[in-house]
Nucleic acid binder design. Structure first.
Lengths: 164, 164
DNA sequence: CGGTAAGCGGACTAGCCAGTCCGCTTAGGG
DNA sequence: CCCTAAGCGGACTGGCTAGTCCGCTTACCG
């Protein structure tokens, strides 16, 4: 079962615009505003996503998949600490320019996307710990919790995480 | 011009209850709920505070004055780094159990209370820096920005701030 | 103890929100 | 090109919010 061409265009545009709105203004933007900026009626939003929450989760899951790709790439860096630190810096930047990540990531607990991200970051953390470069008393979850602050001060937090 | 005894009781109770509500649930609690928990009608809230925002600021200013007292006490600690670190740990705890601080402190920019707090923290920071124990590239403002994350991981962030 | 103004609180308004529904439009297969 | 169902969007609902207002209550002064 495939969508009509115009419907598919609207859906794509909707996800793009919703991503921008949530990033700029946080998850409290009204569905009306998203629909207006996407050039559709808000009825169209609710046909594609039964509730606003479903739209939020769809957008966040896209962002989470991107984070997972970053983590997997960082795992392939030759130096374990540099791989970890590079990932941390990159994610900090993304958080700094995306309110949706700060406000909404915990809503995705339990989704398969969040699980994959968790596993990827865990590998990164364990590799850096085995190399003796990362404090042994932090978990992957701790690391992700530290990112929001780190968004403005990544080097200070990295210094606190580093074993010299 | 002094308040009638019952009116004064209501006002005190209102500030207490509002402080609790904002701490537990954040600044989005409705005025209705605060009034109900304080045992008054919500008309009474708006007689004391022209808008909800005025109530929020009144509550936050109380918290800020408490923080300022902590900073002034920390300045009198014999060891400059321990004074700073103790203040940082204490404030982290307060943030961890008070949503209002996380959500609302920036609203108080410009109030005299916020100015005093800024000056007190600045003294603390400069003393620790003169003692060679605190990174020279952070300002008092940076320190206060780091607290929210530090609420869960104060020792890691302190380690990042410390000069060994 | 009685008069009065300070104080009270709930009914009311206006605005915003998510979510529903249905008559109109139009894409696209035959 | 025409027919039809997929898709559209805006009018509508219901619930929640901050803020207003006024008739009733009660603290407290003389």
């Amino acid at each position: 079962m495939t969508l009509r061409a115009d419907a598919q265009r609207n859906l794509d545009r909707l996800l793009d615009v919703a991503g921008e709105c949530f990033a700029e203004q946080g998850l409290d933007v009204s569905v009306d505003e998203i629909a207006r900026r996407a050039g559709v009626g808000h009825g169209t939003v609710f046909r594609n996503f039964p509730s606003k929450d479903d739209l939020v989760i769809a957008v966040l899951n896209e962002r989470i998949r991107e984070l997972t790709q970053l983590a997997l790439a960082a795992r392939d860096e030759p130096d374990a600490w540099e791989g970890f630190a590079g990932f941390f810096r990159h994610v900090s930047l993304l958080y700094a320019e995306n309110l949706a990540l700060i406000e909404g990531l915990e809503r995705c607990a339990g989704t398969p996307e969040k699980g994959e991200l968790g596993r990827a970051v865990e590998q990164l953390v364990q590799r850096a710990q085995r190399a003796g470069a990362l404090r042994r008393d932090v978990t992957a979850e701790d690391v992700m919790m530290l990112v929001p602050t780190a968004a403005r001060y990544p080097e200070i937090v990295l210094d606190g995480l580093h074993v010299a």
